[in-house]
Each structure stands twice: as C-alpha cells, then as structure tokens.
Amino acid sequence: MQIDLTGKTAIVTGSTQGIGFASAKGLAEAGATVLVNGRGEEAVDGAVAAIRRERPQASLIGFAADLGTAEGCAALIEARPQCDILVNNVGIFGPQDFFETPDSEWTRFFEVNVMSGVRLSRAYLPGMAQSGWGRVVFLSSESALNIPADMIHYGFTKTAVLAVARGLAKRMAGTGVTVNSVLPGPTLSDGVAAMLADEVEETGKTLEEAARAFVMEHRPSSIIQRAASVEEVANMVVYACSLQASATTGAALRVDGGVVDSL
C-alpha cells in the first residue's frame, strides 16, 4: 500500500514530541503539508528542524499556540482557516487520586484533552465537507475503555473523545469526511520516558526494559508484553488519514497491544 497525501494540508496538534511528532513526520513523509504545533516557538522550531533533517523536502509549517485554551485555538483558526486533515492529538496525563483531584484539574484536563478537538473540529469540518473530502483523527486511549483507578480524570476525558468522534462521524455522514479515534495503549513516548527516568537510573535497565516491566506490572493483559513505539501508533494515524481509509469512519482504532480484553 502506497499512501500518497500530496496536495493535502494537515494540522497535527501537540506535535513537537511523542505520538504527535511521529504522526506529523509520517504525514509529511506521505507528501502532506503539515502544520507542527506546540506551546512554544523553540519547541516548534526544534520539531520542524528534526523532521527536515530526515526529510529535507518535507513541506512544514510551524505554529506555536496553547490549544488547551479557546484563545489558542482561535489564533490557529485565524492563521490557518482551512485544512484537509486534522489530527487532534494534544493532550495531558498524569496520575492523581480521585479524592485529591480538585475541580481545577478536572477542568484543565477537559479543556486540553476534549475541548481543543471540539473547537478545532467545529472550525475545520465545514470546509472539509464543502470540498467533499477530509480526515479527522482524535487521539483517545485504551484508558477510555479501561479507566485507570489512579487517573479517573484522564480516563474520563478519553472516553469523552470517543463519544465526540463517533458523534461527529455520524454528523458528517455522506460528506466524504471521515472521523475516527485512535486508541494507543502503553507507548514509549517522551512523557513515559520521563516518568521512568528514575527507575532507569536506579536499576541500570534500558528504557525499553523499564517500559516492559511497567507494562507487565500495570497492564498485565498486554498481549505484546511491551510498550508500543510512537511510530507504531503513528502508522495507524497516517492510515486513518489516507485516501485508502475511505470506508473507515466512526471507528475506535486500537493500537493498545491487546491490553483491552475484549473481542
């Protein structure tokens, strides 16, 4: 299968590192013009430069804005009022006990993980429908189905993302625009690497070994018995954005390594 997105413009939110960066890189490799987003200019410039080092011909746009705010979303929409592909990747996570999680954290997680995608989808989907083609991908998580007891506020937002994506797919029925969710499981992203840094230093394990031990302790139902790479998740994102995925919409596409124990 040869995925060719030449002539398409993609926006990937939160794409200076992790799954977002890998997705931006993958879309650029497929020929799309990709907008790389992060909160700071330095991080955005660094990500753009990193992709260009490997793909000198990549067509890239850098845009710094905090898309966890209405103001940040409005700034992006004003600067780039149209796109063909929208990957709603920006998100935050972190364990915190339910009884110690204040309202402010529930609100912060909801604004970043859910409302960023709501605001951008509301802005860009009408243009996609008018042109008769478009792709929207929301990054959810296996935690949407397997709510972690130590991150209920996070799992809640990822379940909400599934609902929004499914509803939007129905709303866009017959327009040529598809809307899907991608559900990663434990993934060796920058955030996970930072979380495991102390264990790596204390035990002498490699990062991959520490991640494997984490998966087996906290997600023992994993079938691959390791953390996925960000590229493995990005492969699914790129496919969902492709012309070949034209009959895939309203789907929850799992890249969870088999963690969710269901058919």
Rank of each mutant, 00 (worst) to 15 (best):
G204L: 04
P184H: 02
S181K: 02
G174A: 05
V182W: 04
K170M: 11
A227H: 02
V230A: 13
L183H: 09
P184N: 04
A194V: 07
T203K: 08
L188E: 07
A227M: 13
V230E: 05
L188T: 09
L207P: 07
V192L: 15
G191A: 14
A194C: 01
A213C: 01
T178A: 01
L188Y: 10
A240G: 02
S222R: 04
V238I: 10
V182Q: 08
A245W: 08
D198W: 03
A197F: 05
G174P: 06
V179S: 07
E201I: 06
S242Y: 06
A213S: 11
S222L: 07
S181D: 09
T187R: 05
A234Q: 03
A245I: 07
S222V: 08
V177M: 01
E231Y: 02
R171H: 09
A227Q: 07
S189T: 15
A211P: 09
V179D: 07
K170D: 13
E232T: 00
S181F: 01
A197R: 11
S189K: 03
K205N: 13
G174N: 10
V182C: 09
A210Q: 09
D198I: 06
Q244E: 13
M195Q: 14
A213G: 00
V179F: 06
V200G: 10
K170F: 03
A173W: 01
G174Q: 10
A193S: 11
E231H: 06
R171A: 14
E199V: 15
E201A: 14
D198Q: 14
E217G: 02
S229Y: 07
E232W: 03
S221F: 06
G204K: 02
F214I: 06
E217N: 05
Q225H: 10
V233T: 09
L188F: 09
V192E: 03
E209R: 00
F214N: 11
M216N: 15
V177P: 03
S221N: 14
A234D: 06
L183T: 00
Y239V: 05
N180S: 08
A240R: 01
R226E: 13
V200E: 12
D198C: 00
F214G: 09
E217R: 12
F214A: 13
V237F: 08
S246H: 12
I223K: 12
A247N: 05
E199A: 14
A234T: 03
S181Q: 00
V230I: 08
V238L: 02
C241L: 05
L188R: 05
M236I: 12
S221P: 00
E231A: 06
Q244N: 04
V179H: 03
G191N: 12
F214L: 14
A173Y: 04
G185E: 09
L196T: 11
L196W: 04
Q244P: 00
T178I: 01
I224W: 08
A245N: 04
D198A: 11
D198K: 12
L207D: 13
H218L: 07
N180T: 08
V179K: 04
D190T: 13
H218K: 15
M236S: 14
E209S: 03
L196V: 12
A240W: 00
R219D: 09
A247M: 14
K205S: 12
N235W: 05
M236V: 14
T248P: 00
